[in-house]
Write a protein that binds this DNA or RNA. Structure first.
Lengths: 211, 211
DNA sequence: CTAACGTTTGTCCAATCGGTCAAAAATTTG
DNA sequence: CAAATTTTTGACCGATTGGACAAACGTTAG
């Protein structure tokens, strides 16, 4: 039985070149979107001719699809790690920290994902309503357990997860704006540490003045 | 002196048709990005032929530019309203509420802006580093005053503004994902009220359990 | 060496892109 | 009404797009 999903056998050269192409495509797709990117651009970024690239990926969409499949796995890893063992507040704090680190270390992946969602997620809608929803529902239940146990304040766990996604990914997706607004001094390399400190306080205590 | 920025005189028909085109272009640009959109698409959405559209806007970029200029004004209006008079906590809460209402009522404008920033803000970079930075710095100073006066907790005002932008615009830019994850029940029309309730609690009190 | 296989490229193609242009149609003006 | 002006359109253009293809090239096993 061929389900069409298993990876075909590949030579060593094929594996290497495919990686090279995917790396180049990530760079191009994440800054121009799918329709805004051309095969020539990707081929040039990968240091090969267009027909050569099309020898490894038969269609432009195949590259994008491969990229998105890999992305979702690594992208949701931090949420998968959110576990019931350990102190709830610590768990949440380290989830936020990990997500912010991903925004810092893999901004292209974040932008690729944002581009796809912004345009209506035409290629990954089934994944969102299926795999993603299942995972979020599962983790929302965990968080709800913490709320019932009085370990964290009672709120909507789904919107809590959204707010963590939004605030952390903002530093990857809107990086240009963040740096423009912060200026050369505050917008330097330290901006992620500033963000980490701020987000920790926001999610822990909010803005209400002490005392 | 002609600075090139003042609006030329236009007939009634020109004004109406230009509005029609801008409305159609907002729809198309916001879902496909600039390079992903075609003049034919916009013309069809506006109910006219391509040459006719090009009679009102000579270049594709002119449409986008006009759209972005209008956008920034209305988009930043809520932040401009953030004022020193009145209770700080109330001011912030109503700013968050207004931003969330904009995400609900003008999602296309939000996505148009997000598309531009995602792709490196090639067309509005000067505005970000100029007008926008000035406004944010000004409001950050106001917020800092509130912190010094002990009216709200001490944190980084810039990142506070970022977090408000991120959490509210998330419901416009990532709407497809939000609805997919929430499902048909929780993802219905009530999702914005749920979000409003959650965000109010997050920014006010954070997640620390009471007592 | 040579045959087989995997890799690379130059050339080409149909479709689509942004944009032009002259002429027709509609509207306004006198 | 008729002339002048504005609006609309069909036909067209060069450039770029995603992709096809056969021929050339490189590598390796016998």
């Amino acid at each position: 039985m061929n389900t069409g999903t298993e990876a075909p056998r590949r030579t060593r050269i094929q594996q290497e070149k495919r990686e090279l192409i995917l790396e180049a495509a990530l760079e191009v797709f994440s800054t121009h979107g799918f329709r805004g990117s051309t095969i020539d651009q990707i081929a040039e970024a990968a240091g090969m001719s267009k027909p050569n690239l099309l020898y490894y990926f038969r269609r432009k969409e195949d590259i994008h699809e491969t990229l998105m499949q890999r992305l979702l796995d690594t992208w949701l890893a931090p949420l998968r790690e959110l576990d019931d063992i350990g102190d709830p507040m610590t768990e949440l704090r380290s989830y936020i920290r990990r997500k912010l680190e991903m925004a810092r270390d893999f901004p292209r992946e974040s932008r690729l994902f944002a581009n796809e969602i912004l345009q209506g997620a035409p290629r990954i809608m089934p994944l969102l309503a299926g795999e993603l929803k299942t995972l979020v529902d599962e983790k929302a239940a965990v968080i709800k357990g913490w709320m019932r146990a009085g370990k964290i304040a009672k709120t909507d766990p789904w919107h809590l997860i959204f707010s963590i996604w939004a605030t952390t990914q903002h530093y990857a997706d809107f990086d240009v704006q963040v740096r423009a607004v912060l200026g050369p001094n505050r917008g330097g390399d330290g901006r992620f540490e500033d963000a980490a400190r701020f987000l920790e306080q926001l999610f822990l205590e909010g803005l209400k003045p002490k005392g």
